[in-house]
Amino acid sequence: MKNQIYLLFLSIFLSFGLHAQEDDLLSLLGEEEEVTEYTNASFKTNRVINLHSLESTAGGVLDFKIGHRFGTLNGGFYELFGLDNASIRLGFDYGLSDRLTIGIGRSGFQKTYDGFVKYKLLRQSTGKRKMPVTVGILLTSALQTLDWANPDRENHFSSRMYYTGQLIIGRKLSESLSLQLSPTMVHRNLIATNAEKNDVFALGVAGRIKLSKRIALNAEYIYLLPDQVASEITNSLSVGFDIETGGHVFQLHLTNSTSMIEKGFIAETTNTWSDGGIHFGFNVSRVFTIKKKKLG
């Protein structure tokens, strides 16, 4: 009798167990297949402030950039703290694919045209394929079109050209914090004195902290290795906010760099934060989807 009761309980228990399973039908499908999930939105846009961020423009998307730097704050009231002067760069970035971006631009400062190619070699991901960092490579060239300083001497077109190679190694550490390193080499075909180097090596460090869903605090610092540039050249430091509003990203910042392209803000920054040589500036990014993804 005891055994029978035991068995009865067992059978009830078993059938309970089996019925309990029915409460969660989806568990019948077993473990879900792991897929590779690429980390996105490490930065609001493809620039931190001046530096390229580890993000690139999505495939089929055109990003119209308006960069604007006022004069320096130490211009005082006479210059309305820099607001009397402004330097502009207009640019277009286009994503040929999610990994490959090209771009062109024109800066009023030194009347310079620039172009770049940026490719994501590695993409931070979780899931099936795990990758701790995003690694991108950026190649830029710049053509400065100022009138020749010495029109009497023999001038070469090549003297107007500048090139930059940069690796971007970064990681979105958490939902709010992203950091990146940007080891860079800037090549100048023409330099002013023998004391300067044609090739300038620098290391950029940049990060962002999200303050809310649509506002982030960004900062970047570019360290120039010693004995490469003229003595008045300083390291670039910029701090600012990203404000995202649907299709626009507004970046408002303070920076000691006037130029908005690599060869300029890395190797030609002359102002310093300590004596108020700070520009207020903004970047406006407006994206247009040129090629829509085929869906549905």
Binding site: N40, A41, A58, G59, G60, V61, G95, D98, E175, K213, R214, G246, G247, V287, T289, K292, K293, L295
Partner: peptide, 20 residues
């Protein structure tokens, strides 16, 4: 999936908080 990449990013980041 969305037609526009930015919509997809905002959908995940700002509205659905898909990581959470």
């Amino acid at each position: 999936q969305f037609e526009k990449a930015l919509m997809q990013e905002h959908f995940n980041e700002n509205y659905m908080e898909s990581t959470k």
